[in-house]
Design a protein around this nucleic acid. Structure first.
Length: 974
RNA sequence: GCCGAAGUGGCGGAACUGGUAGACGCGCUGGACUCAAAAUCCAGUGUUAGCAAUAACGUGCGGGUUCGAGUCCCGCCUUCGGCACCA
């Protein structure tokens, strides 16, 4: 074998000869990053002859804090997979962009006066640099930014389409408002099956008799983007309305300010129209069952009946929804939500005062308070009665806040005998209970089990619950007192925000308040310049202050609210397909080519919010004929979080002699924890960070004090003595101070001072090493704590990989000629394992296999070109820089990322010999190595002849032999 | 409370369809090289007993199915994530 010394001149910008032997990450990685950039190897076209594959990352909100090591986990996995797919021959769309509108930039602007567009630009620049530093194969020419007018022009355009369409339930499809008007004009509401807030009944004559304003108001009942008065989460401190998923425990998710409920005229999106399809189409998606369950849960479909209870002394009736129509004879009272539209009408003069007091009380209660005392029932009698639709009996109507305005019809029939909440309320209010279900045969059963026999229920008596439900549903329909109904927990999505930093609505109002669409050719409606970002005192967006923007020459005024964060993120995956198109959000050609996202990787935090809205918008655009697919994201993987270790020190709540006292965690007992506050410490100060014994020594206490000067005079009580005023006073003859810190695994966040910046890791170990280490940590879906110590193993692996090519101060040591069988076997085993594991997104075991392979090749002292060349291609998706370097050193001039992915040759996997474990009654007792083609009989006899087996079988009879070819032999004896 | 996921060495984790539990890496121990250190290389490392060969035990707990269970079934416990007065 002769060493093949490939010419150095192949690598053009090579200056130093010595670097040929040394693996120096920094120079090598930046060199290849710029080369890829110059060569444009990650550019994709919309008309390649190759099959397409679309790999998408959830794009980030560019916060001021920058990326930490947790963010790139999913990006690395998608980068590896998209590189693999490209090498497999696909045209791979793998883009990145920024979800750049949002509250933090606006809050920052209020605090500092820095315009959100400036801070956002700065943050995106930083993010982009951090991402590029990791060597991702994004096609940056397709970058999108939701706050860019050329992007949000199309967000506004989609909004106009939503405004201009309604949902036809008979065809399960969105249709233009013009067709709805035509229907009203000819037939009134007759024959219409539409998604709407309420069912309106009117004739064509009625329609023609309405004023334009009245007509417009009726259309609002059907539009997919519509205005309504809704009770919203009003946050005084932020001066804005928050979405349900932006409120946590009655406080704003960001900032933790109190939130109250307040009525406001708001834009909403009629996502409920799509509830059925959003639910049904989940079945075909390759999402985790857990995630699908979350979405199903959120949609919350339930089957039951809608019933109408006449109101005593009125021609109105009370609509209720129930999943248990069989319990109708057990109704002893009705409850309406405090916000119910009939509230005023139902309140009698005698009860007026009591009701008003209650409404004031309920309205002032925050979500948090309501949640805090779930079991505490409150409510008052309205004074009115409903008529039981079958028995004709009078039933009192109460109001209570355990009934929710937005679920069902905002009113219930209360059956205290069969519902815990109704029972609790009846007990509180002293209302009667009629037992209607005999559950004596099922003493353990609960209501949800739907078992038992009906009693005191007229024609239902003696029936089992399921039969009673069916029977009652029939009865309801024959008597025309209601109908079968499917109800959803899903609510329409609130779409207005009283903020500056979001998409303006392409809507103007005339003098009568009728909204008009801004013509398409006037889009985008851009945000006007502004320097005061505070909301107005009456809760309007700061845009309301910009008079010459709001008030148009023709007398129209602009909508001053802006769209919420999820507007831009609900369709960004489509824009990547054709990001610079001026004529459409994406060309038909591009949409036809890319179709949908094949693989979407992102965090679980968007499980219901973003993923639900994006599916809704996608389906809407599909209905309008713009998209060829029903669902946007075919396969979805949720990456876990990378957590940090939060290090904190115990500070005694009460000062000692006017001084703060910190005490070593080792000296604080469980039971006295309450006496201390935990102060997080910047992890840079902590010795043995992340371990049980992490501590601060004298020097790091000093740094801590410099960092938090308010503790300058504090006493630090350590296990070995006391640290005070810059001096350590040891107890007896103790050596040094050890203030043990408390370590717990938790979120990596700026406020916990435990953020690890990927740039620092890359600086020390290189991007390839960082990437592989993140993958090596464990399964992609699992959350796990970051531990910098373990990275040495991966770093060592990469250097060993390198040393297969250049070793011992020699030049390239790659040899030509026939490779030996052992080397080829480990190579092909690795190809097989890595390919399989890639396809099931088991990146951590890929890395392990690479390590096993390199260990083996080192052991075999293999430097064969025919082994190393495919290995470089195999490693390329994982360590793109290193692979590119070695690829070029092997004499190639084009990129390794455009080479073919190696294919396994099964011939090399066949082993000549097999090692069989031999067990007796399932316990392994011996091993034997035999030729791979040995037949079963010989295997059995050879196993029985093994000396260990003979010894163990003494005094036993062999009853049975189990031989699994290639795997194991088990002897059953007794 | 409901829904979902997961419990394996000192640590991160592996074990694909029920077939040698602990791959790979970290850490630790010992050794080589070195004046020394780092780096590198070699060996060992589940627990218990034993000088050892070896044996027993061992995948959260209790039971079951099976020749054989980390893997399947039944019942519990713990942790994490989501939802939470949903009629």
């Amino acid at each position: 074998m002769r060493p093949a010394l490939h010419s150095v001149s192949l690598c053009t910008n090579f200056s130093e000869v010595s670097s040929f032997m040394e693996y120096r990450t920094k120079e090598l990685e930046s060199r290849w990053q710029s080369w890829w950039n110059e060569q444009g190897i990650y550019r994709v076209t919309n008309h390649s002859g190759r099959p397409k594959y679309y790999v998408l990352d959830m794009f980030p909100y560019p916060s001021g804090a920058g990326l930490h090591v947790g963010h790139p986990l999913g990006y690395i996995a998608s980068d590896i997979y998209s590189r693999y797919k490209r090498m497999e021959g696909y045209e791979v769309l793998h883009p990145m962009g920024f979800d750049a509108f949002g509250l933090p930039a606006e809050q920052y602007a209020i605090q500092t006066g820095v315009h959100p567009s400036d801070s956002t630009r700065e943050n995106t620049t930083r993010y982009r640099a951090q991402l590029k530093n990791l060597g991702f194969n994004y096609d940056w020419s397709r970058e999108v930014n939701t706050s860019d007018p050329s992007y949000y022009r199309w967000t506004q355009w989609i909004f106009l389409k939503l405004f201009d369409h309604w949902y036809d339930r008979s065809t399960e499809k969105a249709r233009p408002i013009s067709e709805l008007k035509a229907h009203f004009s000819s037939f009134g509401s007759a024959g219409l099956q539409a998604a709407s807030a309420e069912e309106l009944l009117f004739s064509a004559e009625d329609w023609h008799g309405y004023t334009p304003e009245q007509q417009e108001e009726m259309l609002m009942n059907y539009r997919l983007a519509y205005r309504r008065v809704s009770y919203v989460n009003w946050c005084e401190a932020l001066g804005t309305v928050l979405a349900n998923d932006e409120v946590k425990d009655g406080l704003s998710e960001r900032g933790g300010f109190p939130v109250e409920r307040r009525p406001m005229l708001q834009w909403s999106l009629r996502i409920t129209a799509y509830a059925n399809r959003l639910l049904d189409d989940l079945d075909d998606l390759e999402w985790s069952d857990a995630l699908k369950a979350m979405q199903r849960n959120w949609i919350g479909r339930s089957e039951g009946a809608r019933l109408y209870f006449p109101i005593d002394g009125s021609d109105r009736q009370l609509e209720i929804f129930t999943t248990r129509p069989d319990t109708l004879f057990g109704v002893t009272f009705m409850v309406i939500a405090p916000e119910h539209e009939l509230m005023d009408e139902l309140t009698t003069t005698e009860q007026r005062q009591a009701v008003d007091d209650y409404l004031a009380y309920a309205g002032a209660r925050s979500e948090r308070e309501r949640m805090a005392d779930v079991k505490q029932m409150t409510g008052v009698f309205t004074g009115s009665y409903a008529i039981h639709p079958i028995t004709g009996g009078k039933i009192p109507i109460w109001t209570a806040d355990y009934v929710l305005k937005d679920y069902g019809s905002g009113a219930i029939m209360a059956v205290p005998a069969d519902d815990d909440r109704d029972r609790a309320f009846a007990d509180m209010a002293g209302l009667p209970v009629i037992e209607i279900i005999d559950r004596s045969e099922w003493p353990e059963a609960r209501r949800e089990d739907k078992v038992g026999r009906l009693i005191h229920s007229d024609f239902l008596d003696g029936l089992e619950v399921p039969q009673a439900i069916t029977r009652m549903l029939e009865e309801i329909e024959t008597r025309r007192i209601g109908e079968r109904k499917v109800n959803f927990k899903l609510r329409d999505a609130l779409f207005s925000r009283q903020r500056y930093w979001g998409e303006p609505f392409p809507i103007m109002y005339d003098a009568k308040g009728i909204p008009h669409m801004v013509p398409e050719d006037e889009l985008p409606i851009t945000l006007p310049p502004l320097d005061n970002f505070k909301p107005t005192s009456d809760g309007h967006s700061p845009l309301a202050r910009v008079r010459d923007w709001v008030e148009q020459p023709d007398g129209l005024v602009r909508e001053t609210d802006t769209m919420p964060g999820y507007a831009g993120s609900s369709w960004y995956f489509l824009r990547y397909m054709d990001p610079t198109n001026q004529e459409a959000f994406a060309s038909r050609e591009a949409l036809a080519y890319w179709q949908d996202v094949d693989l979407y990787i992102g965090g679980t935090e968007h499980a219901v919010g973003h993923l639900m809205y994006a599916r809704f918008w996608h389906k809407f655009l599909y209905d309008l004929g713009y998209l060829p697919t029903r669902e946007p994201f075919r396969k979805l993987i949720n990456q876990g979080m990378i957590q940090g270790v939060i290090e904190s020190v115990f500070l005694l709540k009460e000062k000692v002699d006017g001084k703060y006292l910190f005490r070593c965690a080792g000296l604080v007992g469980q039971e006295e924890m309450d006496a201390y506050i935990q102060i997080p410490v910047l992890i840079d100060f902590v010795r043995e960070y992340g371990t049980d014994s992490s501590y601060l020594d004298s020097e790091s206490i000093q740094r801590f004090i410099e960092w938090r000067p308010e503790y300058r005079t504090a006493i630090f009580e350590c296990s070995q003595g006391r640290y005070e005023d810059g001096q350590f006073f040891p107890r007896k003859d103790a050596a040094g101070s050890h203030l043990v810190t408390h370590s717990e695994v938790g979120k990596m966040s700026k406020s916990k001072y435990n953020v690890i910046n990927p740039d620092d890791v890359v600086d020390q170990y290189g991007a390839d090493c960082f990437r592989m280490y993140e993958m090596f940590l464990g399964p992609i879906e699992q959350s796990k704590p970051w531990d910098t110590k373990g990275i040495d193993g991966v770093s060592k692996f990469l250097r060993r990989f390198w040393s297969l090519f250049a070793d011992q101060g020699q030049w390239l040591v790659v040899t030509e000629g026939q490779a030996d069988r052992d080397s080829l076997r480990i190579l092909h085993q690795t190809i097989q394992r890595v390919t399989d594991d890639l396809n099931r997104f088991s990146m951590n075991t890929c890395v392990s296999q690479f390590m096993i392979c390199v260990n083996e090749l080192k052991r075999l002292d293999c430097h064969h070109h025919d082994v190393l060349e495919p290995l470089v291609r195999l490693l390329a998706p994982f360590a793109p820089h290193l692979a590119e370097e070695l690829w070029h050193r092997l004499g190639h001039e084009s990129s390794v990322h455009q080479a073919d992915f190696p294919k396994v040759n099964e011939a090399y996997l066949v082993a000549d010999e097999i090692l069989y474990p031999v067990s007796i009654n399932g316990k392994k007792r011996a091993e034997m190595t035999v030729p791979a083609d040995m037949d079963q009989q010989s295997l059995e006899s050879q196993a029985l002849a093994l000396p260990e087996i003979v010894k163990w079988l003494e005094g036993l009879t062999v009853r049975k032999m189990i031989v699994v070819p290639g795997r194991m032999i088990n002897i059953v004896a007794g």
